[in-house]
Structures are given as structure tokens and as C-alpha cells.
Design a protein around this nucleic acid. Structure first.
Lengths: 156, 156
DNA sequence: CCAATGTCAGCATAACTGACATCA
DNA sequence: CTGATGTCAGTTGTGCTGACATTG
């Protein structure tokens, strides 16, 4: 869970994982230090994918990339912690709508502030222009992951 | 698990997670398509952290950031699959050394080829210069994650 | 005596699949 | 009738902590 210094990792996937963990470890640590000791990774993920007008559990599941069952289990925990409510969707009697509570909104605001601060801290360490280039690369359209069975360079 | 198109994710942590999953999903899918159906995320992580002269389990645990017990559990699976061997360390009778088998070395070579191909594919999609900038940003020294309880911008 | 390594046992988290009722 | 949504039940993968013997 801690971010250690590692000799060299030329593999882009590994570099991305370590960068993610840098943010995630710091976010979780600061949340806990600020009294949000109940926060977990799945909770943050759900908050990160919430849409302004309220989101459907099944839509969240698709966008995050997990099963409907997994999302509902996590959402039920969040209801118990008074972070969200599951209101019935007025437009569709099958569905529910995920809406953050007052407490949930405070959590979201705190998380956003922490993340913004982390990005500033990173800019101070590696340069604002480098962080901007990182953002630009990550916000580009990567398309869907190439999961097709294309042979990886059959030596021509 | 699939990489879906998501409206907008301004949060750097989330962007990094999605980028990692882009690589990881594609790597796993191609490994399975090539007959390496037994590969899992933890196996790839261990292979990614192996040092040339052989690595100690406890060192791997520290660098990857998991417990010694977790590493040993995964290593034992890899031994059963003939991917590595756990040889006694000649310099320290307590320790063992993780050494890839013939089969493990073939796996590593295949994984490297896939990852290199994925990076080429990404360059074709978002530009070689953008990928170079991404690499540069990720290879910079981010330092340890700021897990200290520093208040995140106490509005001056 | 102290620290590091590996190991055994028990447990927690967070996902999965299958099956099913309800509703668009 | 088909497809989407939520839900119940059971299972799996991957990690954790505590406790311990062995060795440096």
C-alpha cells in the first residue's frame, strides 16, 4: 500500500499503476486524517463517477466496469453510512437513483479539495508543465483497450 | 473490467486508473488469447518487479507494497504453474530466491512484446509525442505520496 | 538479545456467477 | 416477448493481521 522507491520500471502499465497509487494512497490517508475514516476505494470510485442529476446503479456499474450486484452491495454500505440515498426513479419504476446526502456532499467537496491540492503538490515536484502534459495525454481519446487477439509484432 | 467511454473525468487519479486499466485489460486479454490463460494480475505484477539476478520474496513484497504472506501465497501458485522456482538463497539460509523457469521466461518475453505493441498502438492513436510526454511525466521523481496530514488548502 | 524471513491459521474486502421477480 | 433493473444466494480471488520457528 505504501509507495516505495523502485529501481526502474520501463513498463508503461506499471508506471501508470504506481502513479495511480500515489494519488490513491495520499487521498485515502488525508481523508482518514480529516476524520473520514470510513472511506474506502470503492466509495471514492462511485463518487468519482456520479453524475450531477443523480445516477442509476446499473449505469454506474457499466461505467465503472463491475457487476450490478457489486455496485449495489457497495451502495448499500454507503446508505448505511449516510453518504447517499437510493431514491426511486420517478421516470422508471424499476430503477433507483443514487443521490448524495448532505454528509455525502461534504465528503465529495473534501475529496475534491484534497485531489486539487495533490495535483498542486505534484506540480511543485515535477513541474506544472509536466503535469499539464500528463493531463493532456490522459484526457486524449485512447479508444477502447485493444483486447482483440492481434498478434503483437510477428517479426517481419 | 471493460474500458467504457465515460463523459468526463477531470480527476487525475481517476484518469490514471483508467489508463492503467486500458493497459492491464489489453495485456490480460492478449495473454489469454495467446494461450496463457492462467495469467493473473498479481503474476504480472511480480514479473514486472523481478530483478535480473533473482529476487527475494520479502523484497518483492516491500517494493510491490503487499505483505510477505500475500507474496508467498502468489509465489506458491506460480511455482505450481511452473512459472518460477523458489531456490534457497546461498548467502542467507533464511531466505529463498525467486527465479523464473524456462516457461516463465517465455511468458515474460511474450508479455514484454505485448506491452511494447500496446505502446505502439497507443502512439498511433494519440501521437508518439504525446506518449513520450506521458512516459516522461511518469518517469519523473514524484517522491513519496504525500500521506502526511497536511490540510488541503486552508483558504488564505 | 534483536531484526529479518518464511510459514501457519484465521479473517476481511470486494469482486464474481447463477437464478429470479418486476417492470419498460 | 424481450430486455433492463434490482435482489437473493453462493462462491472466488486477493489481500490482511496475529503468532511462531529459524536464522543473521
Amino acid at each position: 500500500m505504501m509507495h516505495q522507491s523502485v529501481p526502474a520500471a520501463p513498463n508503461l502499465g506499471l508506471l501508470l499503476l504506481r502513479a495511480f497509487e500515489w494519488f490513491d494512497d495520499a487521498l485515502l490517508a488525508r481523508q482518514h486524517a480529516m476524520g473520514w475514516g470510513e472511506m474506502t476505494r470503492p466509495f471514492s470510485l462511485i463518487f468519482g463517477y456520479l453524475e450531477p442529476g443523480g445516477s442509476r446503479p446499473s449505469g454506474l456499474a457499466r461505467r465503472i466496469g463491475v457487476s450490478r450486484q457489486a455496485i449495489h452491495a457497495t451502495l448499500n454500505e454507503m446508505v448505511a453510512l449516510d453518504l447517499i440515498t437510493l431514491a426511486p426513479d420517478p421516470h422508471d419504476q424499476r430503477a433507483k437513483l443514487v443521490v448524495p446526502t448532505e454528509r455525502g456532499r461534504h465528503m465529495i467537496a473534501a475529496a475534491r479539495a484534497i485531489l486539487a491540492d495533490l495535483e498542486r503538490e505534484l506540480a511543485a515536484r515535477i513541474g506544472a508543465d509536466t503535469v499539464a502534459a500528463l493531463r493532456a495525454a490522459l484526457e486524449a481519446d485512447w479508444g477502447t483497450a485493444p483486447t482483440d487477439p492481434t498478434p503483437p509484432a510477428p517479426s517481419p
